[in-house]
Amino acid sequence: MIVLPRFEYKAAGSVAEACRLLRDAGGAGRVMAGGTDLLVKLKSVARPLLPAPPASGEGPSGPELVVGLRGIRELATLGFDSGRGLVVGATACLADVAAHPDVLRHYPAVAYAASETGTPQVRNMGTVVGNLCNAAPSADNAPALLVLGAEVRVAGEGGERVLPLAEFFRGPGETALGLGEIVTAVEVPVPPARSGASYRHLSARGRVDLSAVGTAAFVSLDEEYARVREVRIALGGVAPTPLLVAEAGAHLADAPVGRRVFAEAAALAARAARPISDVRASAGYRRRMVQTLVQRALLEAVVRAQADGEVRS
C-alpha cells in the first residue's frame, strides 16, 4: 500500500495566514486545495514532479508542511455578475464549476472542460485553480480559460497582484508563483456580444485519463455575423505549457466566417505546437490532431456566437 510520508498540516484561517505559513516553511511548504494532485505527488517515492527543496532547508525526505485552504471561506467563491464576469475561487471544486448555471450559460467551454477533468470523485475534490497551479501541459481547464482572457489573482505577503493566465505558466509544473504566494481565484471577463468559445480534447480512453491534446477556440463576430472580429486559439498537451497561439488569431481577424479560413488557422495552430512523443500519443499524431480539433472548436465557437446573438436580440 502506498502511504504518505509524514508531514505537518495546518488549516489556514485566512489568505494572509496561508501565505505566511508557506513563506515561513521556506520551500518545504505545500499548499493544498482538493489534494488530488498534491497527495499523489507526495505518495510518489521519487517525487519527480515536486520542485527540489532549497539547499538550506530540510532534505528531500524531511518533514514538509501542508497548508490547507478549504477552511478559508472567501476562497470558496463561485459566481458571476454581468459587470465583473466569472470568479472561480481557489477551493471551488470542478464538479461545482461544471454544474453552475451561470457557468453553463455564459461559459459553456469552461463548464465542459471542468466536466471532462478526471473522474467524478476527482471533480468532487479537485479544483479548477488547482488544475491551473499544478501546471501540467495537458491541464484540461487551461485552454478554455486562456482563450477567454482569464486572469489569476495572486496573494502574497506583500499584497495582491493580478496577471494574465497566459503569463502564469512557466514550464511543466512551474508557475509564476513565488515563495509565499497562492492563487486566490481565476477571473474570466464577461464575453462580448456575438461571441462563443469551445474546448475539444482527446485522450486514449476518452474519459478519466489525461488529455493527449486539448484545444480551445474563442470567436467573436461582427454585427452581420459574416466576418470574424476576433479569434483566440489555445492548446494543451502539445508544448511545455498550455499555449495561447497568437498568430492563428491574428490571421483570422476580419476574415469571412467559413471553413476555409478555419482550416488555415488550424494549420497555423498545428505549426505553433511543439509536441513530444510520450505514453499518451506521438508527436506527429498530436500535431495532426491539433489541426482537426482546432477546426472543430472554431466551428462550435461560431455556432455558439451565432446562438449568443439570437439570445440577446
Binding site: 488549516a11 493544498m32 499523489v40 467524478p120
Partner: peptide, 13 residues
C-alpha cells in the same frame, strides 16, 4: 454526500 476518493482525502480534512 459527495463521492470522493478516501485515499486522497486527509483524515484531518
Amino acid at each position: 454526500g459527495r463521492a470522493v476518493s478516501s485515499c486522497l482525502t486527509l483524515a484531518v480534512e
